[in-house]
């Protein structure tokens, strides 16, 4: 059934901290790895070593420059994957029922044996979270690593999405947003977790934490007045070894 559940018992999702993300793309690689080696159709690369390589990814990291009215510009790394929306438009458009949102935990999944590859769900998603696999011709999307998080064959610390497990900066957090006491609910509440494109009315489960204000530039400037004249002061004498080196280099 591609009608959405009225409500879900759990709301599993991610908190992505835009303040902490360093843009290393480790989450992209671990996601691609796990989802190629495990559940479902592998994420294909076509023409991988040719002139026009194209690949299927469930998670991608953009980088944006934000220029505030005052102060310096900031560089923000921005990982983007499925937000497991409560009002997921990708689910209701599916003609076959291949796309569905689970009533138990809210994860949005694709049953690949029912997918006819029409691509309408990818059109319906405002976030670009779904990509048609270039080889298998079925729709691929983030599963929130459904084959890890409940997998009792894995050590307990590995039972979280591959992107969260691998993030070296601790910028990704996994948990249940239906529980107000969960790590993700608290983080989101403390740091003002944001919805992406709220005007689209999709009610995303995943939240993004805005970057915190940075230090002021003028505090860094303390040494500048002392450094500037040193370089071109006539007859400068640094003394000691550095002085000798300075004079010797000058003579050469």
């Amino acid at each position: 059934m591609t009608t959405l559940p009225q409500s879900t018992e759990k709301k599993l999702g991610l908190v992505i901290d835009l303040d902490t993300c360093v843009g290393c793309h480790a989450c992209v690689v671990s996601c691609k790895g796990w989802n190629t080696e495990n559940y479902g159709a592998p994420l294909a690369d076509t023409n991988a070593y040719g002139a026009d390589p194209v690949g299927t990814f469930l998670n991608r990291v953009h980088s944006y420059e934000v220029t505030p009215e005052e102060g310096t510009a900031k560089l923000i790394h921005f990982p983007k994957s499925c937000l497991h929306c409560e009002d997921a438009p990708c689910v209701t458009v599916c003609p076959t029922g291949a796309s569905y949102k689970r009533a138990e935990d809210g994860i949005v999944l694709v049953n690949e044996t029912d997918c006819i590859g029409c691509g309408l769900c990818a059109w319906a998603c405002p976030y670009g979270a779904r990509e048609m696999d270039g080889v298998e011709k079925v729709m691929k999307k983030c599963t929130l690593c459904v084959d890890r998080i409940y997998n009792e064959n894995l050590p307990e610390e590995d039972r979280e999405p591959a992107c969260v497990r691998t993030c070296p900066a601790g910028a990704r957090h996994f948990g249940d947003f239906a529980d107000p006491e969960s790590n993700v609910s608290k983080l989101s509440a403390e740091r003002g977790g944001m919805d992406l494109m709220p005007e689209q009315g999709t009610k995303p489960v995943n939240k993004y934490l805005p970057p915190r204000p940075k230090d002021q530039l003028d505090e860094v400037d303390i040494l500048a007045p002392f450094l500037a004249p040193l370089d071109d002061a006539p007859g400068r004498d640094l003394g000691g070894f550095l002085g000798w080196l300075d004079k010797t280099l000058e003579k050469i």
């Binding site: 835009l18 934000v66 220029t67 900031k74 494109m197 970057p211």
Partner: peptide
Amino acid sequence: TATGLGTLGG
């Protein structure tokens, strides 16, 4: 709005 960063600046 797409990045949620619009409130911080351009």
